[in-house]
Nucleic acid binder design. Structure first.
Lengths: 233, 233
DNA sequence: TGTGGCAGATACGTCAGACGTTTAGCGTCC
DNA sequence: GGACGCTAAACGTCTGACGTATCTGCCACA
C-alpha cells in the first residue's frame, strides 16, 4: 500500500466516483483539461494523466476540435465483453486459468442458454439464430455478411439475458483466438454446422429440452476437438 | 474510427501487444520513462500517458525511488473480478442489464457450482466451506475473521474452476452492493444461514445432487427476498 | 567490530509554458 | 445558393525544470 496516492490517481478516483454515482451522467461534457486541472488544484499534465486512466476504462471519451473535449461515455456491453476477454486471455496464458476450465464453464452455460432461447425466442430472434447457423464458414471473408455473428454468440444473445452473453462471449473469444485451426479436416466443420442447424431447429420450434441436449452434445464434441494433442498454442 | 490514433495510444498498444505476446514477461523492468519515450520517438509526457493507460489496465505497475521504475505485473484474478464487477455495476445502472438477469445467471451458475464442489472438494476445501457457512453475519464487524469470505464466494472457489469464480463473483458483488439491507428481519438471515449450513453438509459428504438442489432452492428463496417491492435502490 | 545515520543516485511525480493539430461553425465570395 | 477558407476552442505533444520517494553504500562513532 502506498502511503500517498499520486495526484493523478486521486483525481481519477474522484472523477470515477462522481461518474459511477451518477453525479456526472453519461453524455456530460467535462471542463477542458486546463480548467479541470485548476478545479482539482493540479496542473494540466496531471489532469490529463487522470483522464487517460478513465478513458482506458471506457468511462470517458475525448474528442478534438471545437466542440471537442472530454465526455462521460455511456456503458457499452460490447466493450465490457472485449475487456473481460482480454483479461481472460492474460489469465489463460498463465497456469492460473486452464483451458479445461473454460470448456467446463462453456458446457455449463451454453446448454442452459439454448434452453432459455428455445423458451423465449420471438420470430425475429429465431430468424437471426437460423441465419447464423446457416452461414457457411468462409475463412477468406470473415466479415462477409453484415449482421452475421458467430452462432454461439447469436445464441447467447437470443436468451434475452445480457448477463449470459457477457459471461459466455469472452470465453468463446478466448477459445477461438487460441485455437489453431490447422489440422482440422473440412468434414469436421461440416459436422459442426450440422449441429448448429439442428439446434437452431429445436429453438425455432420451442423444443427447450431437445435444444439443451443437442447443445450439450455439441459442446462435448467440440471439446473433444479442442483437446486433441497439440491443438493448443 | 479516428483517422490517426494519438501517439500515447499507439505506444500503449505497442507495449500491450508485447506484454500479451510474452515478449515482455511479467516482472520485466521497462526502461525509465525518458528512455522509453526516446525508444518510441515521443516525449516523456506522452510515454507517461501511455503508461497510465497500461497501469489502469493492471498490465504494469510503477514504483518510485532507486530500483523503482515500471514493471510488467503478473495477472491477478482478484483484480479481474474487481474490474468485471465495476463494469457490471455500470451496466446495471442503466436499463441495459436488468437485475433479474443477474439473478437468472446466478441461478444457472451456483447450483452447478455446488454440484461440482460436492464432487471435487478435498478435506481442506470442505473445511473452508463449512467455516464460511458457520460464520455469523455481523454487520458491525464485516471483516471480523481473517480468511472469512462470503459463503457463495467460497463455494465458487471450491469448484476448483477459476472461471466459475470469475463469472459468479462479480454478479454476487453487484447484487450485494445494490441490496438495501434495511427492512429484512433478522430471522430471515437466520434462515439463510441454515440453508448455507445444509449445503455445506451436502458438499462435505459428497452428495452432489442434493447440494445442487439445495443451492437451487436457496437461490430461489434469495431471489424472492431480493425482488420484494422497493428492495432495490 | 558493529551499527546507526547521512549523502548521493535514480526514477517517478508534478508543474509551467509553448506550439502544433484537429474540427466545427460561420462568413464571404463567386 | 453553394463552395471555399478563416477562426477559435480544445486536445495532442514537446521541452525543461524541480520536487520527492526510495534504495545503496559509505563513514563516523560507539
Amino acid at each position: 500500500m502506498q502511503r500517498v496516492r499520486p495526484a493523478y490517481r486521486q483525481v481519477a478516483d474522484e472523477l470515477r466516483t462522481q461518474i459511477l454515482a451518477g453525479t456526472l451522467p453519461s453524455g456530460t461534457r467535462l471542463p477542458n483539461e486546463a480548467e479541470l486541472g485548476r478545479a482539482f488544484g493540479v496542473s494540466r499534465s496531471t489532469a490529463r494523466e487522470a483522464l487517460r486512466v478513465l478513458s482506458s476504462q471506457h468511462l470517458v471519451e475525448t474528442h478534438r476540435g471545437v466542440q471537442g473535449g472530454t465526455f462521460v461515455s455511456e456503458p457499452d456491453p460490447a466493450r465490457v465483453v472485449e475487456d473481460v476477454g482480454s483479461a481472460l486471455g492474460v489469465l489463460v496464458m498463465t497456469p492460473q486459468l486452464h483451458v479445461s476450465d473454460l470448456l467446463e464453464a462453456r458446457l455449463l452455460l451454453e446448454p442452459a442458454a439454448a434452453r432459455l432461447a428455445a423458451q423465449r425466442a420471438d420470430a425475429e430472434t429465431v430468424e437471426a439464430v437460423r441465419t447464423a447457423a446457416a452461414a457457411r464458414r468462409d475463412d477468406r471473408d470473415p466479415s462477409g455478411f453484415v449482421g452475421h455473428l458467430d452462432f454461439h454468440t447469436t445464441l447467447l444473445m437470443a436468451t434475452g439475458n445480457l448477463m449470459l452473453t457477457l459471461m459466455g462471449q469472452p470465453v468463446n473469444d478466448v477459445l477461438r483466438t487460441r485455437l489453431r485451426r490447422a489440422g482440422v479436416e473440412p468434414g469436421e466443420w461440416d459436422k459442426v454446422d450440422a449441429c448448429h442447424r439442428e439446434i437452431a431447429d429445436h429453438i425455432a420450434q420451442g423444443r427447450a429440452g431437445e435444444a439443451e441436449e443437442a447443445m450439450r452434445d455439441h459442446i462435448v464434441e467440440l471439446r473433444r476437438l479442442y483437446e486433441r494433442d497439440g491443438f493448443w498454442t
